[in-house]
Design a binder for these strands. Structure first.
Lengths: 181, 181
DNA sequence: TCAATATTTCAGTAATTACTGAAATAAATT
DNA sequence: AATTTATTTCAGTAATTACTGAAATATTGA
Protein backbone atom coordinates (compact mmCIF):
# COMPACT_ATOMS: atom_id res chain seq x y z
CA UNK A 1 0.00 0.00 0.00
CA UNK A 2 1.40 3.33 -1.04
CA UNK A 3 0.84 5.95 1.64
CA UNK A 4 0.11 9.51 0.67
CA UNK A 5 2.26 12.19 2.36
CA UNK A 6 -0.24 12.97 5.10
CA UNK A 7 -0.89 9.33 5.92
CA UNK A 8 2.85 8.76 6.03
CA UNK A 9 3.32 11.69 8.38
CA UNK A 10 0.54 10.40 10.59
CA UNK A 11 1.91 6.85 10.75
CA UNK A 12 5.49 7.96 11.39
CA UNK A 13 4.46 10.36 14.12
CA UNK A 14 2.30 7.75 15.80
CA UNK A 15 5.26 5.41 15.71
CA UNK A 16 7.52 7.94 17.38
CA UNK A 17 4.95 8.69 20.08
CA UNK A 18 4.63 4.99 20.76
CA UNK A 19 7.59 4.94 23.09
CA UNK A 20 6.10 7.69 25.30
CA UNK A 21 2.78 5.83 25.20
CA UNK A 22 4.31 2.54 26.29
CA UNK A 23 4.39 0.57 23.04
CA UNK A 24 7.19 0.22 20.54
CA UNK A 25 7.45 1.97 17.24
CA UNK A 26 6.27 -0.87 15.04
CA UNK A 27 3.25 -1.59 17.21
CA UNK A 28 2.22 2.05 17.15
CA UNK A 29 2.87 2.35 13.41
CA UNK A 30 0.77 -0.67 12.59
CA UNK A 31 -2.10 0.63 14.64
CA UNK A 32 -1.87 4.02 12.97
CA UNK A 33 -1.76 2.35 9.58
CA UNK A 34 -4.86 0.26 10.19
CA UNK A 35 -6.65 3.30 11.54
CA UNK A 36 -5.79 5.49 8.58
CA UNK A 37 -6.38 2.72 6.04
CA UNK A 38 -9.86 2.14 7.41
CA UNK A 39 -10.01 -1.36 6.00
CA UNK A 40 -8.69 -4.82 6.95
CA UNK A 41 -5.11 -5.44 5.90
CA UNK A 42 -3.13 -8.66 5.82
CA UNK A 43 0.27 -9.03 7.43
CA UNK A 44 2.10 -9.10 4.12
CA UNK A 45 0.63 -5.79 3.07
CA UNK A 46 1.52 -4.22 6.40
CA UNK A 47 5.05 -5.58 6.07
CA UNK A 48 5.50 -3.99 2.65
CA UNK A 49 3.91 -0.68 3.58
CA UNK A 50 6.00 -0.18 6.71
CA UNK A 51 9.11 -1.92 5.42
CA UNK A 52 9.80 -4.02 8.50
CA UNK A 53 10.35 -7.76 8.89
CA UNK A 54 7.39 -10.04 8.48
CA UNK A 55 8.08 -11.58 11.88
CA UNK A 56 8.06 -8.17 13.47
CA UNK A 57 4.58 -7.58 12.08
CA UNK A 58 3.45 -10.93 13.41
CA UNK A 59 4.66 -10.14 16.92
CA UNK A 60 3.33 -6.59 16.83
CA UNK A 61 -0.11 -7.75 15.72
CA UNK A 62 -0.12 -10.10 18.67
CA UNK A 63 0.76 -7.21 20.94
CA UNK A 64 -2.05 -5.09 19.48
CA UNK A 65 -4.40 -8.01 20.07
CA UNK A 66 -3.25 -8.08 23.72
CA UNK A 67 -4.26 -4.43 23.90
CA UNK A 68 -7.63 -5.30 22.35
CA UNK A 69 -6.94 -2.71 19.71
CA UNK A 70 -7.34 -4.94 16.66
CA UNK A 71 -9.52 -7.80 15.57
CA UNK A 72 -9.24 -10.19 12.67
CA UNK A 73 -11.61 -9.67 9.78
CA UNK A 74 -11.82 -12.67 7.46
CA UNK A 75 -12.37 -11.77 3.83
CA UNK A 76 -14.19 -14.09 1.45
CA UNK A 77 -11.91 -15.73 -1.05
CA UNK A 78 -8.77 -14.92 0.91
CA UNK A 79 -7.48 -17.32 3.49
CA UNK A 80 -4.88 -14.97 4.91
CA UNK A 81 -5.68 -13.28 8.21
CA UNK A 82 -6.78 -9.70 7.86
CA UNK A 83 -6.60 -7.19 10.68
CA UNK A 84 -8.57 -4.09 11.39
CA UNK A 85 -8.94 -1.56 14.17
CA UNK A 86 -11.99 0.41 15.10
CA UNK A 87 -12.65 3.51 13.02
CA UNK A 88 -14.36 4.97 16.07
CA UNK A 89 -11.83 7.03 17.95
CA UNK A 90 -14.00 6.94 21.05
CA UNK A 91 -13.97 3.21 21.16
CA UNK A 92 -10.20 3.25 20.78
CA UNK A 93 -9.93 5.76 23.57
CA UNK A 94 -12.01 3.61 25.87
CA UNK A 95 -9.89 0.59 25.10
CA UNK A 96 -6.65 2.43 25.79
CA UNK A 97 -7.97 3.80 29.08
CA UNK A 98 -9.12 0.35 30.14
CA UNK A 99 -5.80 -1.26 29.23
CA UNK A 100 -3.60 1.43 30.71
CA UNK A 101 -5.59 1.35 33.91
CA UNK A 102 -4.98 -2.39 34.09
CA UNK A 103 -1.26 -1.98 33.46
CA UNK A 104 -0.46 1.30 35.22
CA UNK A 105 -2.93 1.43 38.10
CA UNK A 106 -4.27 -1.93 39.19
CA UNK A 107 -0.94 -3.54 40.14
CA UNK A 108 -0.01 -0.54 42.27
CA UNK A 109 -3.38 -0.43 43.99
CA UNK A 110 -2.84 -4.07 44.91
CA UNK A 111 0.62 -3.41 46.36
CA UNK A 112 -0.52 -0.34 48.29
CA UNK A 113 -3.27 -2.42 49.88
CA UNK A 114 -0.69 -4.99 50.91
CA UNK A 115 1.47 -2.24 52.36
CA UNK A 116 -1.38 -1.10 54.55
CA UNK A 117 -2.62 -4.57 55.40
CA UNK A 118 0.63 -5.62 56.98
CA UNK A 119 0.43 -2.76 59.45
CA UNK A 120 4.14 -3.10 60.13
CA UNK A 121 4.74 0.51 59.27
CA UNK A 122 2.16 1.84 61.66
CA UNK A 123 4.26 2.24 64.75
CA UNK A 124 7.39 3.17 62.91
CA UNK A 125 6.08 6.00 60.78
CA UNK A 126 2.48 7.07 61.03
CA UNK A 127 2.99 9.95 58.60
CA UNK A 128 4.34 7.66 55.91
CA UNK A 129 1.42 5.33 56.43
CA UNK A 130 -0.98 8.22 56.01
CA UNK A 131 0.64 9.21 52.72
CA UNK A 132 0.33 5.66 51.43
CA UNK A 133 -3.28 5.66 52.52
CA UNK A 134 -3.96 8.90 50.65
CA UNK A 135 -2.17 7.61 47.57
CA UNK A 136 -4.30 4.50 47.62
CA UNK A 137 -7.48 6.50 48.13
CA UNK A 138 -6.68 8.72 45.16
CA UNK A 139 -5.76 5.83 42.91
CA UNK A 140 -8.85 3.86 43.86
CA UNK A 141 -11.06 6.86 43.24
CA UNK A 142 -9.49 7.53 39.84
CA UNK A 143 -9.71 3.87 38.97
CA UNK A 144 -13.44 3.51 39.66
CA UNK A 145 -14.10 6.86 38.09
CA UNK A 146 -12.35 5.81 34.88
CA UNK A 147 -14.27 2.55 34.81
CA UNK A 148 -17.54 4.43 35.07
CA UNK A 149 -16.66 7.06 32.52
CA UNK A 150 -15.66 4.66 29.79
CA UNK A 151 -19.09 3.10 30.02
CA UNK A 152 -20.75 6.31 28.87
CA UNK A 153 -21.91 6.77 25.32
CA UNK A 154 -19.42 8.77 23.27
CA UNK A 155 -21.91 11.61 22.89
CA UNK A 156 -22.49 11.80 26.61
CA UNK A 157 -18.81 11.55 27.41
CA UNK A 158 -18.02 14.34 25.00
CA UNK A 159 -20.61 16.53 26.68
CA UNK A 160 -19.20 15.80 30.10
CA UNK A 161 -15.72 16.64 28.86
CA UNK A 162 -16.85 19.78 27.11
CA UNK A 163 -18.53 20.84 30.31
CA UNK A 164 -15.12 20.65 31.96
CA UNK A 165 -14.60 22.19 35.34
CA UNK A 166 -18.13 23.56 35.35
CA UNK A 167 -19.27 20.24 36.79
CA UNK A 168 -18.02 21.50 40.10
CA UNK A 169 -21.15 23.63 40.24
CA UNK A 170 -23.13 20.46 40.73
CA UNK A 171 -21.17 18.91 43.55
CA UNK A 172 -22.10 19.54 47.16
CA UNK A 173 -19.19 21.47 48.55
CA UNK A 174 -20.28 21.18 52.15
CA UNK A 175 -19.58 24.88 52.48
CA UNK A 176 -21.34 27.92 51.08
CA UNK A 177 -18.18 29.24 49.47
CA UNK A 178 -17.66 28.73 45.75
CA UNK A 179 -14.39 27.27 44.58
CA UNK A 180 -11.68 29.38 43.02
CA UNK A 181 -10.94 28.92 39.37
CA UNK B 1 18.69 5.68 55.67
CA UNK B 2 17.49 2.25 56.63
CA UNK B 3 14.11 1.49 55.11
CA UNK B 4 11.57 -0.52 57.01
CA UNK B 5 10.03 -3.49 55.16
CA UNK B 6 6.94 -1.62 54.02
CA UNK B 7 8.86 1.41 52.82
CA UNK B 8 11.22 -0.88 50.96
CA UNK B 9 8.32 -2.67 49.32
CA UNK B 10 6.79 0.67 48.34
CA UNK B 11 10.01 2.03 46.86
CA UNK B 12 10.85 -1.14 44.96
CA UNK B 13 7.36 -1.41 43.53
CA UNK B 14 7.35 2.22 42.47
CA UNK B 15 10.66 1.60 40.76
CA UNK B 16 9.31 -1.35 38.83
CA UNK B 17 6.20 0.57 37.75
CA UNK B 18 8.40 3.39 36.54
CA UNK B 19 8.99 1.77 33.18
CA UNK B 20 5.26 1.48 32.49
CA UNK B 21 4.86 5.09 33.64
CA UNK B 22 7.56 6.40 31.35
CA UNK B 23 10.45 6.96 33.73
CA UNK B 24 13.30 4.66 34.57
CA UNK B 25 13.63 2.63 37.73
CA UNK B 26 16.03 4.90 39.58
CA UNK B 27 13.98 8.01 38.88
CA UNK B 28 10.82 6.33 40.13
CA UNK B 29 12.60 4.88 43.17
CA UNK B 30 14.02 8.23 44.20
CA UNK B 31 10.65 9.85 43.95
CA UNK B 32 9.06 7.09 46.00
CA UNK B 33 11.82 7.40 48.58
CA UNK B 34 11.41 11.15 48.98
CA UNK B 35 7.66 10.71 49.22
CA UNK B 36 7.84 8.02 51.88
CA UNK B 37 10.63 9.77 53.78
CA UNK B 38 8.59 12.94 54.01
CA UNK B 39 11.67 15.07 54.58
CA UNK B 40 14.44 16.61 52.46
CA UNK B 41 17.28 14.20 51.67
CA UNK B 42 20.68 14.88 50.19
CA UNK B 43 22.07 13.02 47.20
CA UNK B 44 24.56 11.05 49.27
CA UNK B 45 21.84 9.70 51.52
CA UNK B 46 19.71 8.72 48.53
CA UNK B 47 22.72 6.99 46.98
CA UNK B 48 23.32 4.92 50.08
CA UNK B 49 19.68 4.06 50.65
CA UNK B 50 19.05 2.88 47.10
CA UNK B 51 22.55 1.53 46.50
CA UNK B 52 23.07 3.07 43.07
CA UNK B 53 25.89 5.21 41.71
CA UNK B 54 26.13 8.77 42.92
CA UNK B 55 26.12 10.00 39.33
CA UNK B 56 22.94 8.11 38.64
CA UNK B 57 21.28 9.93 41.53
CA UNK B 58 22.51 13.24 40.19
CA UNK B 59 21.03 12.58 36.75
CA UNK B 60 17.81 11.17 38.14
CA UNK B 61 17.29 14.18 40.39
CA UNK B 62 17.69 16.36 37.34
CA UNK B 63 15.07 14.28 35.57
CA UNK B 64 12.68 14.61 38.52
CA UNK B 65 13.27 18.35 38.43
CA UNK B 66 12.32 18.34 34.73
CA UNK B 67 9.09 16.70 35.76
CA UNK B 68 8.58 19.37 38.42
CA UNK B 69 8.24 16.61 40.97
CA UNK B 70 10.98 17.73 43.34
CA UNK B 71 12.37 20.95 44.70
CA UNK B 72 15.51 21.75 46.62
CA UNK B 73 15.14 22.48 50.28
CA UNK B 74 18.19 24.16 51.82
CA UNK B 75 18.83 23.17 55.41
CA UNK B 76 20.57 25.48 57.85
CA UNK B 77 24.04 24.36 58.73
CA UNK B 78 24.30 22.03 55.76
CA UNK B 79 25.62 23.26 52.46
CA UNK B 80 24.69 20.15 50.54
CA UNK B 81 21.61 20.30 48.33
CA UNK B 82 18.58 18.63 49.83
CA UNK B 83 15.64 17.45 47.80
CA UNK B 84 12.03 16.96 48.67
CA UNK B 85 8.79 16.15 46.93
CA UNK B 86 5.32 17.24 47.86
CA UNK B 87 3.65 15.22 50.60
CA UNK B 88 0.35 16.15 49.00
CA UNK B 89 -0.61 13.35 46.67
CA UNK B 90 -3.08 15.63 44.91
CA UNK B 91 -0.41 18.10 44.02
CA UNK B 92 1.73 15.26 42.70
CA UNK B 93 -1.16 13.98 40.66
CA UNK B 94 -1.74 17.38 39.13
CA UNK B 95 1.92 17.68 38.23
CA UNK B 96 2.01 14.26 36.59
CA UNK B 97 -1.12 15.00 34.58
CA UNK B 98 0.29 18.32 33.44
CA UNK B 99 3.61 16.82 32.44
CA UNK B 100 2.20 13.75 30.76
CA UNK B 101 -0.22 15.90 28.82
CA UNK B 102 2.73 17.97 27.60
CA UNK B 103 4.70 14.86 26.60
CA UNK B 104 1.99 12.50 25.38
CA UNK B 105 -0.68 14.78 23.98
CA UNK B 106 0.52 18.20 22.93
CA UNK B 107 3.06 17.05 20.30
CA UNK B 108 0.45 14.85 18.65
CA UNK B 109 -2.18 17.57 18.66
CA UNK B 110 0.32 19.75 16.85
CA UNK B 111 1.06 17.12 14.21
CA UNK B 112 -2.62 16.33 13.65
CA UNK B 113 -3.27 20.00 13.04
CA UNK B 114 -0.50 20.06 10.47
CA UNK B 115 -1.97 16.96 8.83
CA UNK B 116 -5.28 18.73 8.41
CA UNK B 117 -3.83 22.12 7.48
CA UNK B 118 -2.03 20.76 4.45
CA UNK B 119 -5.31 19.52 2.99
CA UNK B 120 -3.37 17.19 0.69
CA UNK B 121 -5.25 14.20 1.94
CA UNK B 122 -8.66 15.67 1.26
CA UNK B 123 -9.19 14.56 -2.29
CA UNK B 124 -7.36 11.30 -1.87
CA UNK B 125 -9.16 9.95 1.14
CA UNK B 126 -11.97 11.87 2.73
CA UNK B 127 -12.70 9.11 5.24
CA UNK B 128 -9.14 9.12 6.53
CA UNK B 129 -9.24 12.87 6.88
CA UNK B 130 -12.44 12.59 8.88
CA UNK B 131 -10.85 10.09 11.26
CA UNK B 132 -7.87 12.39 11.78
CA UNK B 133 -10.29 15.24 12.42
CA UNK B 134 -12.15 13.20 15.02
CA UNK B 135 -8.91 12.11 16.65
CA UNK B 136 -7.82 15.72 16.90
CA UNK B 137 -11.19 16.80 18.27
CA UNK B 138 -11.06 14.15 20.97
CA UNK B 139 -7.48 14.94 21.94
CA UNK B 140 -8.12 18.66 22.05
CA UNK B 141 -11.20 18.14 24.18
CA UNK B 142 -9.36 15.88 26.62
CA UNK B 143 -6.45 18.26 26.72
CA UNK B 144 -8.48 21.34 27.67
CA UNK B 145 -10.57 19.29 30.04
CA UNK B 146 -7.46 18.04 31.86
CA UNK B 147 -6.10 21.57 32.08
CA UNK B 148 -9.32 22.74 33.67
CA UNK B 149 -9.62 19.84 36.06
CA UNK B 150 -6.16 20.14 37.52
CA UNK B 151 -6.96 23.69 38.49
CA UNK B 152 -9.65 22.55 40.90
CA UNK B 153 -9.06 22.34 44.61
CA UNK B 154 -8.29 18.79 45.72
CA UNK B 155 -11.50 18.64 47.73
CA UNK B 156 -13.57 19.71 44.77
CA UNK B 157 -11.77 17.39 42.42
CA UNK B 158 -12.31 14.46 44.75
CA UNK B 159 -16.01 15.25 44.87
CA UNK B 160 -16.23 15.42 41.11
CA UNK B 161 -14.43 12.09 40.83
CA UNK B 162 -16.54 10.47 43.52
CA UNK B 163 -19.60 11.64 41.68
CA UNK B 164 -18.36 9.66 38.70
CA UNK B 165 -20.69 8.95 35.83
CA UNK B 166 -23.57 10.61 37.66
CA UNK B 167 -22.42 13.92 36.22
CA UNK B 168 -24.12 12.87 33.02
CA UNK B 169 -27.40 13.74 34.73
CA UNK B 170 -26.37 17.36 34.51
CA UNK B 171 -25.43 17.57 30.87
CA UNK B 172 -27.95 18.56 28.25
CA UNK B 173 -28.41 15.45 26.17
CA UNK B 174 -30.34 17.15 23.38
CA UNK B 175 -32.76 14.27 23.51
CA UNK B 176 -35.34 13.24 26.05
CA UNK B 177 -33.89 9.76 26.40
CA UNK B 178 -31.66 9.01 29.36
CA UNK B 179 -28.40 7.21 28.80
CA UNK B 180 -27.97 3.54 29.49
CA UNK B 181 -26.48 2.07 32.66
C1' DT C 1 -0.44 -37.06 1.38
C1' DC C 2 1.92 -33.85 -0.82
C1' DA C 3 2.79 -29.37 -2.29
C1' DA C 4 1.83 -24.56 -1.78
C1' DT C 5 0.77 -20.83 1.12
C1' DA C 6 0.40 -18.60 5.53
C1' DT C 7 1.93 -17.83 10.15
C1' DT C 8 4.69 -18.24 14.34
C1' DT C 9 8.70 -18.97 16.96
C1' DC C 10 13.06 -17.95 18.38
C1' DA C 11 18.15 -17.50 18.33
C1' DG C 12 21.07 -14.02 17.11
C1' DT C 13 21.98 -9.15 16.30
C1' DA C 14 21.08 -4.27 16.37
C1' DA C 15 19.58 -0.33 18.67
C1' DT C 16 18.37 1.97 22.60
C1' DT C 17 18.38 3.09 27.28
C1' DA C 18 20.23 2.83 31.99
C1' DC C 19 24.01 2.93 34.91
C1' DT C 20 28.85 3.22 36.63
C1' DG C 21 33.22 5.20 37.75
C1' DA C 22 36.51 8.51 36.95
C1' DA C 23 37.58 13.02 35.88
C1' DA C 24 36.15 17.81 35.67
C1' DT C 25 33.91 21.61 37.67
C1' DA C 26 32.04 24.34 41.28
C1' DA C 27 31.49 26.09 45.89
C1' DA C 28 32.69 26.77 50.54
C1' DT C 29 36.12 26.77 54.30
C1' DT C 30 40.70 27.28 56.10
C1' DA D 1 45.17 30.42 47.18
C1' DA D 2 44.96 25.95 48.78
C1' DT D 3 42.18 22.35 50.58
C1' DT D 4 38.13 20.09 51.48
C1' DT D 5 33.51 19.05 50.19
C1' DA D 6 29.77 18.85 46.89
C1' DT D 7 28.07 18.21 42.32
C1' DT D 8 28.02 17.37 37.36
C1' DT D 9 29.54 15.55 33.14
C1' DC D 10 30.49 12.02 30.16
C1' DA D 11 32.93 8.06 28.04
C1' DG D 12 32.51 3.39 28.52
C1' DT D 13 29.85 -0.67 29.81
C1' DA D 14 25.84 -3.25 31.16
C1' DA D 15 21.17 -4.30 30.63
C1' DT D 16 17.15 -4.12 28.20
C1' DT D 17 14.27 -3.90 24.35
C1' DA D 18 13.36 -4.08 19.35
C1' DC D 19 14.00 -6.27 15.16
C1' DT D 20 15.61 -9.59 11.60
C1' DG D 21 16.05 -13.85 9.12
C1' DA D 22 15.80 -18.57 9.08
C1' DA D 23 13.65 -22.55 10.52
C1' DA D 24 9.56 -24.78 12.36
C1' DT D 25 4.71 -25.25 12.47
C1' DA D 26 0.21 -24.90 10.79
C1' DT D 27 -3.39 -24.65 7.23
C1' DT D 28 -5.51 -25.18 2.82
C1' DG D 29 -6.22 -27.15 -1.66
C1' DA D 30 -4.80 -30.13 -5.35
Amino acid sequence: MELNPVAKKFVLHWGEMGSTWGVNRTVAQIHALLFIAGRPMNAEEITETLDVARSNVSMSLKELANWNLIRTAPLIGDRRDHFETSADVWELFRTVVRERKAREFDPTIEVLRECLRSGEIAKEDAAAQLRIKETLALMEALSSWASEMIRLEPETMMKVIKMGAKVQNFVRTGSTATNKT
